[in-house]
């Protein structure tokens, strides 16, 4: 029997162009849809039931921090208890006073002190986060580690404008 040999001298060339087209289309899609997601973090607050009942009676009195809104809903005044914190850096002062007030001799964050935030209705929310930052801790500039101050933060009942 005679076996026919196919002519093997012809080389089969693959058409690369459509594949490269698709590859580049995919690449462009992913490049354009790629967005850098900034890390997000939380301030955890535990506020069971209605705010009036939530205040567990503790030995230490609750520190009250008032944030007042002024023109264009910006921060007008910060008060710690009855003491107004003046100057252009009220949150820095607030943090310094909190650090002086709390007893964290058993280690950072060991204080069971509680802070109640009383904010004006119209105040921009970023000032509240700044106040919570000042109250809950700070970043040690030498070690670059976070030091906790007061972790129990709650809101005073809302007051409609």
């Amino acid at each position: 029997m005679k076996i026919r040999h196919a002519d093997r001298r012809e080389q089969i060339t693959l058409q690369m162009t459509p594949m490269i087209d698709i590859v580049f289309q995919l690449l462009i899609f992913f490049v354009f849809t790629f967005k850098i997601v900034l890390p997000e973090g939380d301030f955890n607050i535990r506020m069971p039931a209605a705010s009036g009942e939530s205040a567990e009676e503790s030995e230490t009195p609750v520190i009250r921090v008032r944030l007042r809104a002024g023109e264009n809903r910006n921060l007008a005044a910060v008060e710690l208890g009855d003491t107004p914190l003046t100057g252009d850096n009220p949150f820095g002062q607030l943090q310094a006073r909190i650090r002086g007030m709390i007893d964290d001799s058993a280690g950072p964050g060991s204080s069971d002190q509680e802070v109640e935030l009383d904010c004006d209705y119209d105040l921009r929310y970023r000032y509240v986060i700044q106040a919570i930052t000042a109250i809950t801790g700070y970043v040690d500039p030498t070690t670059n580690e976070q030091v906790k101050l007061i972790e129990k933060v709650r809101f005073a009942p809302t007051s409609q404008p």
């Binding site: 301030f43 700070y138 970043v139």
Partner: peptide
Amino acid sequence: FERFALRGKKAEAPTIRSP
């Protein structure tokens, strides 16, 4: 509901200045 988490974005530079 009892547990709340107020979300913020991580800031590289400190937002609170020392007095």
